[in-house]
Design a protein around this nucleic acid. Structure first.
Lengths: 176, 176
DNA sequence: CTTGGAATGTCAACAAGGCTGACGTAATGT
DNA sequence: ACATTACGTCAGCCTTGTTGACATTCCAAG
């Protein structure tokens, strides 16, 4: 999480313009960190409930999500996007393939590569999980309003590691 | 994660007023979900690096954070805030107490309760972790600007489970 | 052409940190 | 007196991260 117990040291830079920059105080940053923590729990709660009934986990959801978004992607590609080791991903991928949710085709030009696709069953589960997650996001977006959503996106994007931001942006472009 | 592969079915509710509500399309929600995923990774990356050198994990950080924010809190309180089982919390808490970062005092009025405090050493580590996390948040906030930050907070709050939102708000009040 | 190295993916084993279930103990409340 | 609450603990399970070892495939330098 974050922290920021003592309200003694302000620890904030001097106001840039004439503005107060209240939002950059330690206490504000602390609250932001806690908001991230609690909100992320909400963000994953609905799909997690569905996954639990299937003896799958969040990792399976992530794999389904990104394969769906980039059909034919390679294992290495997926690795970079998810930010885990290939061994970790492989375990998840193997169960998804065994269960007939994902298809792995040996690459034509480079036979070392495996290209990943969702089967119809895989697409169905991916949609079910995504619908659950989007329902909450839609409600939150609607409640907060368009300007809030724009700000939300801006802050999230600024919070990413540069590598991840590139990943994120190229995924966006790839889908228009 | 979310999903939303096929761009065939719009799957968006009709515009409420005369507005487009572009931000409520499936594709926008999907991007929001991916942004949450990548941003959360950034959010935890810096403290994680420090924790790894100490053979602690994210769970330790969370415990330190919330004890710091509410000194004297009870185990049961912390349980509710963190949303884990007592067995899971106890494992983490035990190591923190053994290592002299957390002090557990038997309650005066109710001797069944244990009140939790950070030692000086605990405060030092909490501050180190929090500083790392806040540095990134401060940069993101600064880059996005005050209005974006306000929207960010609004959306996050709307995304929480009601129980977590209450937790969050009462923590805020408790610190002013 | 061959061979060594890099890239890709798989198998095995381990650790962190969730979970459930069962149980013990002390203190509190009814 | 008895049920309940708060806390700790043991045992065992699962998911998901890690590293290490290894097979296959490709490519480029000799």
């Amino acid at each position: 999480m974050a922290e920021g117990d003592r309200r003694l040291e302000p620890r904030m830079r001097a106001p840039a313009s004439g503005e107060t920059l209240l939002y950059l105080t330690d206490e504000q940053l602390r609250q932001g960190a806690e908001a991230m923590f609690f909100a992320y729990r909400g963000f994953t709660a609905d799909p997690d409930r569905i996954l639990a009934t299937l003896s799958y986990g969040r990792a399976h959801h992530r794999a389904l999500h990104f394969i769906n978004g980039a059909p034919g992607t390679t294992v290495n590609n997926l690795l970079a996007t998810l930010g885990v080791t290939k061994q970790s991903l492989n375990r998840v991928l193997r169960t998804l393939i065994e269960d007939g949710l994902v298809e792995s085709r040996v690459g034509r030009v480079d036979k070392r590569e495996r290209h990943l696709f969702l089967t119809e069953e895989g697409k169905a589960l991916e949609r079910e999980l995504g619908d659950a997650q989007r329902a909450r996001m839609r409600a939150a977006y609607k409640q907060a309003g368009p300007e809030a959503v724009a700000g939300f996106r801006r802050v999230l994007e600024a919070m990413m590691d540069p590598d991840m931001r590139r990943q994120y942006q190229s995924l966006r472009e790839g889908r228009g």
